[in-house]
């Protein structure tokens, strides 16, 4: 299933330039994001990790066009986040599955395809003007995607009849089915038990292998970040900022046995160190570009 981002492009999939987000006003204002700059190449799997309140969700909301930056710029494939969303180039997997309880699994994953139909035209126009070529992604085979995550038998069930893990699988299929150029995931597995979490990580990687899209994945788990990602972005709070960008040079596919290798542990330790350092040292005025 080809998408816009299958081949390498000079245009970054996501570009944040000195993005600032401030909540509240005056004395009581809180700098959720302080001049955050980040480029993400198309097709990369990027995790964002950091202590609670460091602005991870805020960062995702800016990319998802749910909020606008107070200063700086947020671009998705060369257009604004707003334009990218209007063209349905961005997909979201929230922490809660957020399925509609009255629709079967099949209808839940199918509904987004029928919404905002004007997006296809806008998306083609963006692809043509920004990337200089036309795209025509074939309609996704939702049945096959459901099958791939083991929901083939559950397609006619209602969400409340499914376990939490199965619901989150459906939410992931729903997002992948949009064949988004950018897929945003905000702690999608944090409410799941460890077993389910690991199987979902594996299925997520399988899907991502098939539908090569750019993923930004927020997590609190160092192991999860290392296992899934090409790049791990470490953030720190007060004010919310990026303190480190670490590339994970581990071979793919990353099976369960990968987790036990020394190289894997090396990355885990590195990220833990950086997290702790970020936690201890408050922001200095120095340039972090």
């Amino acid at each position: 299933m080809p998408t816009v981002s299958t081949t390498a492009d000079p245009v970054p999939a996501i570009r944040l330039v000195d993005a600032v987000k401030v909540y509240g006003e005056g004395e009581r204002s809180l700098i959720a994001l302080d001049r955050v700059s980040l480029d993400i190449e198309p097709g990369r799997f990027v995790s964002i990790i950091g202590p609670s309140g460091c602005g991870k969700s805020t960062l995702l909301r800016l990319i998802a066009g749910l909020e606008d930056a107070d200063d700086g710029a947020v671009g998705v494939f060369g257009v604004t986040a707003q334009d990218a969303c209007a063209a349905k180039m961005v997909g979201l997997v929230p922490q809660q599955p957020a399925l509609l309880p009255w629709l079967s699994v099949e209808r839940n994953v199918g509904l987004p395809l029928r919404i905002n139909r004007g997006a296809a035209r806008r998306r083609a126009a963006i692809a043509e003007s920004v990337l200089g070529r036309r795209i025509d992604p074939p309609a996704p085979d939702m049945g096959a995607l459901l099958e791939a995550v083991g929901l083939g038998d559950a397609r006619h069930k209602l969400p409340p009849q499914l376990s939490g893990g199965m619901q989150q699988r459906a939410a992931i299929v729903r997002a992948f089915g949009l064949q988004p150029d950018v897929l945003l995931m905000d702690e999608p597995f944090s409410a799941l038990d460890e077993f389910t979490r690991e199987s979902l990580q594996e299925q997520l990687l399988d899907l991502w292998d098939e539908v090569k899209t750019t993923v930004v994945f927020v997590t609190h788990s160092v192991t999860e970040a290392v296992r899934l990602s090409d790049t791990v972005v470490v953030m720190a709070p007060r004010p919310g900022r990026i303190v480190d960008v670490i590339d994970i040079d581990l071979p793919r596919p990353r099976s369960g046995s990968q987790i036990k290798t020394a190289a894997f542990h090396g990355y885990e330790d590195l990220i833990r160190d950086r997290l702790q350092a970020a936690w201890r040292t408050p922001a200095t005025g120095e340039d972090r570009a």
């Binding site: 969303c85 997909g91 979201l92 509609l100 919404i115 905002n116 997006a119 945003l184």
Partner: peptide, 23 residues
């Protein structure tokens, strides 16, 4: 409507009418 549901459909820019009718 739960916030996460609204967010999902806002990100794909469901129109007001679509949001009203489907959600």
């Amino acid at each position: 409507v739960p916030a996460a549901v609204l967010q999902f459909y806002t990100v794909i820019r469901a129109s007001r009418l679509e949001m009203l009718w489907h959600v």
